[in-house]
């Protein structure tokens, strides 16, 4: 087959949008704009994970030196420790989500302020933190925040996990800020006009008429953001927080068995999956419910 022929086939494939050759298909932005919202776990992922885990357990056991405990027994042995680490992941995600949502709501409202300077400042902070890699934010918080705070006479220690939580909260804040701004702007202008004609003040209109309608629109992407945040908490292992990812590394170091490497990380993956999958399902069903207007 000549090069020219192949080339024309690729072109034809691109145009016809179907080809057995590896072509770049037209890229379409999903409903959720931005990086968030792209990946969602589904049942096939769970099946694939479970099969992979089973295969590696069997293969690993076959490779193991005689006399060593089976991989399943080893996984079960470390489960309580892994659970404590995973609980820290959940705690970090809860606190970062709560703090980020509160801060992000106010930042988002500042983005739609009538005062241009307020809008400008809010826009800057939103864009700055939204476009910074989460890991960079984590490092900044680890290095810039002191290990303890002294307020008056009391000393408040700032452990590493708290600093990591602050870093993740900044990322959440910026994303929530955009969610709020986008949701407010998606409400038809007629709602503002009708409220104005009924003598509502701008503040009343915002809090009693616009924002209640936004909550419904924001809930699915907000839950999506939370699922992404939970997965993102594993980043805290890089800055030395003793969460499940760090502990998995510690366990592997302690066991010092190469056949354990893949099953152990797959096992951890299953934990995250089990936690995030129901959230993803709920998000999808909410989206479906809210679509009808």
């Amino acid at each position: 087959m000549g090069a020219g022929h192949a080339h024309s086939r690729i072109l034809a494939g691109v145009i016809a949008n179907r080809s057995d050759l590896p072509v770049v298909l037209p890229f379409r932005l999903g409903a959720g704009t931005g990086a968030a919202g792209a990946w969602r776990p589904g049942p096939p992922h769970a099946v694939a994970l479970a099969i992979a885990l089973a295969v590696f357990v069997v293969v690993g056991d076959a490779q193991a030196a005689p006399g060593t405990p089976s991989i399943l027994t080893t996984l079960l042995k470390w489960t309580p420790l892994l659970a404590t680490g995973f609980l820290l992941n959940i705690a970090i995600s809860f606190i970062a989500m709560a703090a980020g949502t509160v801060a992000g709501t106010f930042l988002g409202l500042m983005q739609i302020s009538l005062l241009a300077p307020v809008r400008g400042v809010a826009w800057f902070f939103t864009q700055f933190f939204r476009n910074a890699p989460w890991l960079v934010l984590l490092f900044y918080c680890m290095l810039l925040l002191p290990f303890e705070l002294q307020i008056g006479g009391t000393v408040i220690p700032l452990p590493a996990w708290m600093k990591a939580t602050a870093g993740l909260a900044l990322a959440v804040m910026a994303n929530v800020s955009e969610l709020v701004r986008g949701a407010v702007q998606s409400i038809p202008f007629g709602q503002w006009e009708a409220s104005e004609a009924l003598a509502f003040s701008r503040r009343q209109t915002l809090w009693m008429i616009i924002l209640p309608q936004c909550v419904k629109r924001m809930l699915p992407p907000w839950m999506n953001l939370y699922a992404i945040l939970v997965v993102g908490t594993a980043l805290a292992s890089i800055v030395g927080v003793n969460e499940s990812m760090t502990l998995t590394g510690d366990i592997l170091a302690a066991e010092n068995r190469t056949e354990l490497l893949v099953p152990m990380y797959l096992y951890l993956l299953l934990w995250f999956f089990a936690y995030c999958y129901p959230i993803a399902r709920a998000t999808v069903s909410l989206e479906r419910r809210f679509q009808v207007r």
């Binding site: 038809p188 007629g190 009708a194 004609a197 003598a199 207007r293």
Partner: peptide, 21 residues
């Protein structure tokens, strides 16, 4: 006083603009 004015003047729109929630 815009609010005082709007209390006196009622308005109905083409698109109703009811509060859906």
């Amino acid at each position: 006083d815009k609010l005082a004015l709007r209390r006196k003047v009622g308005m109905v729109f083409q698109q109703y603009n009811l509060f859906p929630h």
